[in-house]
Amino acid sequence: MLRKLIAAIAWIPLLAAPAKLKAQVAKEVPSLVTFPDVGVAILQPSGFEQAESFYGFQQPSTGASVMVLAIPGPFAEVTQGFTKTALAEKGMTLHSKELTQVKGQAGVKVYFSQQAYGQEFLKWAVLFGDTKRTTMVVATSPKSHAPRLRNSLQSVLQSVEPAKTAASPLPFKIEEGSLSQVQGVATGNTALFTRDGMVPVATPNDPMFVVALSIGDVRVGNRKEYARRRLFETAQTEIESLQSTTPVTIDGLDGYELIAIGKDQKSQTLLMLYQVMLFPDEGGYILMTGMVGQQQAKNYLSQFKAMASTFSHNSK
């Protein structure tokens, strides 16, 4: 699960997309904004606006953002995984990591950076949690704007407070089929499905299906090539052969379905990967990815296809 979280962090610089998410001003501390789904309250930085497609704030003029998210997973295990090696696997550089306190709870502060889109992004994060769930607040700024934004973003991280949780629906619907949705994931734009509804999966052979809305005003030229490139960027996998690329239309949105054979980088387990990428006219994309051990490919390919076909926006 940590590897999936790190893969998600790599895309945090991307901003803006449809689907408004729930946040509210904390009554007890008017200067803080509470994100009930995540269970955290933070200060809204000056000059930043409420993000519409992820939990947090954004400043489109600079590409800076503050994102809050939660995942099911022990705090100790998740934070131990934030190493130079783990971050380097996704093109990120760890600069520092130290213990901290979040309103009396044990926490960790991490400072790292990432090269993306021809520039360097600096990231400051605070993580806290318990034996079941880990909450993260990450502030991101292009390096060129960091001298002006650094103090403001670090003030946001210093303001982090745990808050009561109250889950709200995702901005899309999809039928589970034979898989079960993992509870406790709170990013505002992602749903994760496994055989027993638990993460991490026992082995790379076990099926996993992920549905995610892009968190960026992504500029897509050649859609077919973009979908292909995204498949080859699937976290912690090595794509060995692309088996097929097929145009699809789901929920009135055009896109491409791709099927490939690859390997899990760590265990070298043979995998079947299934990807559907849909492209709304207003920009961004919907990404649905299924993966399972090659020995179970025949059993799960049809199930991945069936799940993807049920995708629909809640607004419809």
Score class of each variant (00 low, 15 high):
S312V: 11
M136I: 00
A146W: 09
S31N: 15
V102R: 05
V199M: 13
A106Q: 15
A19C: 05
D206G: 01
Q80S: 15
W124K: 11
V211C: 11
I6W: 04
L94Y: 09
T134D: 07
K266C: 02
R230P: 04
Q114W: 00
N314M: 14
M1C: 05
M288A: 12
G284L: 12
F82C: 13
D281T: 09
V38C: 08
P171S: 06
N314C: 13
P36G: 04
A88Q: 14
V248E: 05
A26I: 07
F279C: 09
E52D: 11
E120D: 12
K173Q: 13
P30D: 13
A125C: 10
S96M: 11
V108W: 08
L99Q: 10
V68K: 12
K27H: 10
M288S: 12
M288I: 06
K123Y: 02
E49F: 02
E120Y: 04
T289R: 14
L153I: 00
G81N: 14
H145V: 04
E89S: 15
T310Y: 08
H95E: 10
N222G: 08
K22Y: 10
A163H: 01
A16M: 00
G184Q: 01
T194N: 04
G63I: 05
A86Q: 13
R148A: 02
M277S: 14
K109D: 10
L253V: 00
M92Q: 10
G290D: 08
A163C: 04
G262I: 02
K97R: 14
A191K: 03
S155M: 09
K103D: 12
L149V: 07
T245K: 02
M208T: 02
Q80D: 12
K22G: 02
L170A: 13
A227K: 03
T194F: 09
S159V: 03
Y55A: 04
P147G: 07
D264Y: 06
L179A: 02
P169E: 15
E52S: 10
E77P: 00
P207S: 00
F35C: 06
D254M: 04
L179F: 06
L301F: 03
G129K: 03
S155I: 00
Y117P: 02
A64Y: 03
T100E: 06
F304S: 05
N314R: 15
S312Q: 15
L270I: 03
T62S: 01
T310I: 10
L231V: 03
E175D: 04
Y256G: 06
L94Q: 07
Y117D: 06
T140W: 01
V33A: 08
W11H: 11
L258G: 10
V40N: 01
F193I: 00
E225N: 07
V220N: 09
G39A: 00
K97M: 08
T131F: 08
L43A: 04
G81A: 13
S168N: 13
L242W: 00
K266I: 03
M288D: 06
I174V: 09
A51K: 03
T93W: 11
A186R: 12
Q295E: 04
Y111L: 14
Q80E: 15
N189R: 11
I9Y: 12
A116H: 07
T93E: 13
V137Q: 02
L99R: 09
I71Y: 12
Q296E: 08
D196N: 15
K20Y: 05
F121C: 01
I215W: 05
Y274L: 11
P30M: 11
E282I: 09
L270Y: 09
M208I: 05
V138I: 11
T194H: 09
A106E: 14
